[in-house]
Amino acid sequence: MGNKDNKMTDKQMVFYPDFLFREAIAALIVVIVVIAMALLMPMKMGDPADPSDSSFKPVPEWYLMAPFYLLKLFPPSLEIMPTVIIPLLTFIFLLIMPFVDKNPEVHPKKRKLAMLLMGVGTLLVILFTVIGVLTA
């Protein structure tokens, strides 16, 4: 445990204390941020649920904005695409990805197709989220 010079050297590290302490510092920062958010942005209450109200405009949380926005894009005949097919395919695609991507290389520069696909997918999600938030 006595390796003191483990900053960014090529030395093998051990979980404790080398890695755990870095993790702990990062985690502490996040906890402080969460508590600060809770203090600075106190929770409020909306109005009680009213099924007979038509003036309320529902907006989902930001992380569900992308699928919510997709719902607007498809015509009635293709309604099943945004509601079921696209979410399901995304999930299945993520699940089987390690078995489809047989390329043994790990460096991004040697995995151009995989990086491109994931990049486009990520950008689309961010784009839909941003458009969704702006048009909501």
Binding site: D10, Q12, M13, V14, F15, Y16, F19, E23, A26, V30
Partner: peptide, 17 residues
């Protein structure tokens, strides 16, 4: 004492966070 590879950077903390 579980070994951790050298040169892990801060992005390795996301899972723990």
């Amino acid at each position: 004492d579980h070994p951790v590879p050298p040169r892990v950077n801060f992005t390795y903390c996301f899972g723990g966070i």
